[in-house]
Amino acid sequence: MTTEAIISTRDLSYSYPGGIAALSGVYLDILPGEFVAIIGSNGSGKTTLVKQFNGLLKPSQGHVIVDGLDTRTTRVSELSRIVGFVFQNPDHQTFAYSVWEEASFGLKLQRLDEESIERQTTDALRAVALDGLRDRHPRALSRGQRQRLATASILALETPVLVLDEPTTGQDSLSRRQIMELTVDLHGEGRTVIMVTHDMSLVAEYASRVIVMQDGQVVCDSQPKEVFEREEIMKSSGIELPPVIRIARGLREYGFSDTPLTQEELVENLITAIRR
């Protein structure tokens, strides 16, 4: 067991009330500063897994250790100082009457002093470009803005680990880029990012490690390039390769041998190959 892991699962199994097994025998070590993508089809156990990381769900069997704390015996309020969780649907998370109130709520719960609340909330709202709308009612925001507000309310907590469940769903390309730039900045500051997503282009571009879930089990855990090469796993997990990788692979029969992950890399590689 690696002692430096910030999140470890040991023989983690979980069944929802009613007996439906959602996770079985999961062993994982997530190290501080990793950028992890968790992928798999609907119902594969992705969200159930990440909900174990902040104690929203507790193991039916085995253990989850977060920064040295066993989630079975640690209060959620304690875990929430370590793991910030941004839900997929911002409407499941937002409830306050103003943007400011929403973004600062978690800090108030932690009984921080006024000055810290003011500073951390302002920083978080600025990071998601909502600092101009602090008195707006969350329901009067667009879906994209509500998603960013939900993110801000978690960012304000300044937790060392961030879990993002489908962070870019329903976002246009501009806000998708803004959200990911923000995530990259936070990761650059040394935070651990764990992202659940169906968007394989995001995985290819940003993740340093990809965990593939299928029927409640980890079926692959590697770097993006290697994971996307595992055709049988991609197929059985219902994962669609991102267009960049599909194009690069199709070009192999024309003698193209690179494995780019981003559009920019594909263009660069193509130009080099054409000129050769």
């Binding site: 267009p243 599909r246 194009i247 199709g250 070009l251 029969e253 024309y254 193209f256 193509l270």
Partner: peptide, 12 residues
């Protein structure tokens, strides 16, 4: 993607 493979393949 299919059209891309075709079009870029012709350049290679």
């Amino acid at each position: 993607s299919e059209e891309g493979i075709q079009a870029f393949g012709e350049l290679l």
